[in-house]
Design a protein around this nucleic acid. Structure first.
Length: 863
RNA sequence: GGGCGUAUAGCUCAGCUGGGAGAGCGCUACCCUUACAAGGUAGAUGUCGGCAGUUCGAUCCUGUCUACGCCCACCA
């Protein structure tokens, strides 16, 4: 309501823009989308708080094949009609209708996840603007001669009845067979043995091919073979393409239905025979098999060959066969007329942009995938025989047959002969064509007015593209090509490739396995913040995130922890003052501010580098271990005392830290942090979403406090450990003797008496020096700088204590030996850098001290 | 067939330019202690996939082997 997601110039005077990869209009939010939203929203919120003019531009993809499928299915179920029962315009209206009513559920789901794009910028790939961009680009490429129509062998999907691109074909392993056939040779009694996995295509054979140097077949080259059944006479040709080891070394050539044979056919000028109809049944060239499917025909042709005595044998064979990635239909290579884009030059530019580091991949390794596509690019088959999509803007004059591309939606006359009867190409463009222009068209390109309105110059080139590695070629590469071609600029400076979300066993989430995790269900169970934090914590430079709902529950507990920390603090915060006016901080306060400064630095750095795993772990540990376990616990005696000054200062520090924590976390957990902020903020403060992100402050250095606090924490933990080792009840109080020589530390510890009581139920501490007598009946622990004794009245199991200390001693001695060995090694002393030697020496000293303490005590106990 | 990647605690993973093996979850014991049992305190757990090499020193670099995953190509 407050339009906080809308870009506003900030203190940085720079822009930051992410174009959201548009989800399919038919789509429902899945775990992968949730990760998409989380990573992008975290960046956007971070940059917004940093003071950039921030735009996250949302959108939706028309998803040609998927959407047409959905509506066709629906129409079939409801009306028992196919699209061919309607005319094109009426059916398209039905799809638009569906889009208005049912499309785009996903946008609402993104809102539930807390996404903060400027929804007013929302764009649909078939909106007027993108359509204008498509027509402009197509026409321009056409006029440049880069778009051409050609008879070409394409992947034909018989279910969709459309050509699909190479990238849309999935190869699956299937078990088939090698059929060994005999072809007769004209004017000879010799038989040629040919192995094939597709005997049914022999009706389209227009040659037989052998290797030119294959001695077995030398004498046959140039002769004529007779294709069985149709008795076609075809030449026996030679080409080095043939692999002598494979099959029988003798290849039947079917240029109409095999990619390699097509190339071979072009090279040797062979005729192309098309055997198939659009639904992959045999046409009239299939002779008496006309109307049969390939599968039936294969069976029956094999039988006929056997009758003719031309089938030598059938061997089992496992091979890879192409299937449509959407329809799952068996793909048939078929020769047909299609539109192509020559991408050779554009691909080269796209490669250069990465090698010149105009755009960088994070993690860098993914550029290999990008290069592997673009260094040997195949021309892009643009046309799809569908109705739903951007119609190809090519027109043909019915009078003079002039063919041209036109930027106008419906040109009125032929530009050559002015004849008014013109016809538009019936096909639509591959969906990725409009996707390739997405960073341009969403920002108003090519329309000058819209570009001003959308602030093209402010946001282009965009800052970061966030997407999955599965569409590096489909989408990323093509955006790069188009943008470089038409603006001379890269479309984005960084490309962050996030992981693929898998189930907890590392399997792909799929409908058939039923292992999908529904984000909405997770939000309802654990909350959007917990879910987002889990995804972010699992995201860095890794390829997979194995998502286990138990982890979400773990982070839900963390979110809950923060809430409870606030509940504790809330009653004391009224007296809190802004920290800038507060003086006389005590050592605990200085310590926590130092730690806060460290975590602030680490958060800023890691988000900038897309290392969300590091960000989450840093804030998690700070909140849990530093802030809750120690600082809040240490604050209790003060807040419950009546030392008003100290109370006020402590409340101020608590509030300061907590406000920073909430701000630091906001990019990942927007809901709870904004809510807490409402309770923490001053009247004049705006919402957290536009509050400054905490910055590292170099001037904060509390090294002494940090050293002393770490020692204090070690002693407290050590006392707790001792208590636990002899099962002292948590409520029972004990006295402690600490043997220590360091004066600074003694002074520090003396100020902590009340905290010893609060944190470890210590009612009496006596400080002594190392040379004083140790208490006789007692338990002890040693550190590198002190010995801790708890004198005990009752019966102590001496053996237990001796075992415990001996175990510790063994560990310590292992370290002592390792370090002394190192220092005794001449080569180490000669070659190792000085700081490593110094560090090793001080480690040795520490461990030696500790081991000496342990030895002394053991001697006394055994004594 | 070509390429990329991964093997570290029971599970999921981190370990950034080589210098004392880490986290979360899970597990064990004791505690309903005045923010939090969705909690607290204490604790156990690893031939860092195998082998060889470089180095004073290897989880990290090189080679090699093994296992797994992904991508691309390919219906002889």
């Amino acid at each position: 309501e407050g339009k906080y997601f809308r870009p506003k110039p900030g203190k940085k005077n720079e822009s930051y823009c992410i174009i959201m990869p548009p989800p399919n209009v038919t789509g429902k939010l899945h775990a992968g989308h949730a990760l998409d939203v989380t990573t992008q929203d975290a960046l956007i919120r971070f940059k917004r708080m940093k003071g950039y003019e921030t735009l996250w531009l949302p959108g939706m993809d028309h998803a040609g094949i998927a959407t047409q499928n959905v509506v066709e299915k629906k129409v079939w179920e409801e009306e028992k009609k196919t699209r061919h029962d309607y005319d094109r315009d009426t059916f398209l209206k039905k799809i638009w209708n569906w889009k208005e009513n049912f499309g785009g559920i996903i946008a609402d789901q993104q809102r539930r996840l807390g996404a903060s794009p400027d929804w007013d910028y929302s764009m649909f790939t078939m909106d007027k603007g993108p359509n204008e961009a498509v027509r402009k680009v197509f026409t321009s490429l056409f006029n440049e001669g880069l778009i051409y129509q050609s008879d070409y062998i394409v992947n034909w999907d018989p279910v969709l009845q459309s050509a699909i691109s190479d990238a849309e074909v999935e190869h699956k392993e299937v078990s088939g067979a090698f059929y060994h056939l005999h072809y007769k040779i004209k004017d000879s009694n010799e038989l040629l043995e040919i192995a094939t996995t597709r005997p049914e295509t022999l009706l389209g054979d227009t040659a037989v091919c052998v290797h030119p140097e294959d001695e077995r077949f030398q004498h046959l080259i140039g002769k004529t073979a007779i294709v069985p059944i149709c008795n076609r006479e075809v030449p026996i040709i030679a080409d080095e393409y043939v692999d002598r080891e494979k099959g029988t070394g003798c290849l039947k050539v079917t240029p109409g239905h095999d990619f390699n044979d097509f190339d071979l056919g072009k090279k040797h000028n062979l005729p192309i025979i098309n055997l198939l109809n659009k639904d992959a049944t045999f046409n009239e060239n299939g002779l008496h098999y006309q109307g049969k499917t390939c599968k039936q025909a294969r069976k029956e042709i094999t039988a006929e060959l056997e009758e003719l005595g031309l089938l030598k044998e059938v061997k089992d064979h496992i091979h890879q066969v192409g299937h449509g990635d959407r329809s799952h239909a068996l793909i048939e290579p078929i020769v047909s007329k299609q539109w192509f884009l020559n991408v050779q030059d554009m691909a080269r530019e796209a490669v250069n942009a990465i090698t010149d580091e105009k755009t960088k991949f994070f993690p860098k390794g993914w550029e290999n995938t990008y290069f592997s596509w673009l260094r040997e690019p195949k021309n892009w088959c643009l046309s799809r025989q569908l109705w739903w999509g951007h119609r190809i803007p090519v027109f043909t004059c019915q009078s003079c047959h002039h063919q041209w591309a036109d930027e106008n939606i419906s040109p009125s006359a032929c530009p050559k002969c002015q004849h008014q009867k013109i016809e538009q190409d019936p096909d639509v463009l591959d969906t990725w064509f409009s996707s390739a222009l997405w960073p341009l068209s969403t920002l108003g390109w090519p329309n000058k007015e819209r570009m001003i309105e959308k602030k093209f110059d402010t946001f282009f080139p965009t800052a970061t593209l966030v997407t999955g590695h599965d569409i590096i070629f489909f989408w990323v590469a093509r955006m790069m090509m188009m943008s470089l071609k038409f603006t001379g600029q890269v479309p984005f400076k960084d490309i962050y490739i996030h992981a693929i979300v898998r189930d907890k066993l590392g399997r792909k989430m799929s409908k058939s396995l039923g292992n999908g995790i529904d984000p909405i269900e997770m939000i309802e169970l654990y909350g959007a913040d917990s879910f987002r934090f889990t995804l972010a914590a699992g995201s860095g430079y890794n390829r997979n995130i194995n998502l286990d709902p138990e982890r979400i529950s773990g982070y839900r507990n963390f979110i809950n922890k923060i809430w409870n920390a606030f509940r504790f603090m809330a009653p004391f915060l009224e007296d809190a003052k802004p920290l800038s006016g507060v003086k006389n901080l005590d050592s605990h306060e200085k310590w926590i501010l130092g730690e806060l400064n460290i975590v602030t630095k680490s958060m800023n750095k890691s988000i900038e580098e897309y290392r969300y795993d590091d960000s989450c772990s840093a804030i998690y540990h700070f909140v849990y271990e530093k802030f809750c376990s120690w600082f809040i616990e240490l604050s209790k005696p003060i807040l419950h005392s009546d030392a008003e000054d100290k109370k006020r200062i402590r409340a101020s520090v608590l509030k300061h830290c907590f406000k920073k924590i909430v701000a630091l976390m906001h990019p990942f957990t927007p809901y709870i942090t904004e809510e807490l902020w409402a309770h923490l903020k001053e009247k004049e403060d705006d919402l957290l979403i536009v509050t400054d992100y905490p910055e590292f402050d170099e001037s904060i250095t509390f090294d002494q406090e940090t050293i002393q606090m770490n020692r204090f924490i070690e002693i407290i933990s050590s006392i707790r450990n001792l208590r636990s080792s002899v099962n002292i009840k948590p409520k029972d109080e004990v006295g402690v003797n600490i043997f220590i020589d360091d004066q600074k530390t003694i002074e520090f510890l003396k100020e902590q008496v009340i905290f010893f009581h609060n944190l470890a139920k210590v009612n009496n501490i006596v400080f002594k020096t190392y040379d004083e007598q140790r208490p006789a009946k007692s338990i002890m622990n040693a550190t590198s700088f002190c010995e801790i004794f708890i004198p005990l009245e009752g019966v102590i199991d001496l053996n237990d204590q001796i075992n415990r200390l001996e175990k510790d001693l063994a560990k310590t001695m292992k370290e002592v030996n390792k370090f002394s060995k190192k220092l005794a090694n001449e080569k180490f002393m000669r070659n190792a850098p000085e700081d490593v030697v110094i560090e090793t020496r001080s480690k040795l000293e520490e461990f030696t001290q500790k081991s000496q303490s342990l030895k002394n005590s053991l001697a006394a106990f055994k004594g």
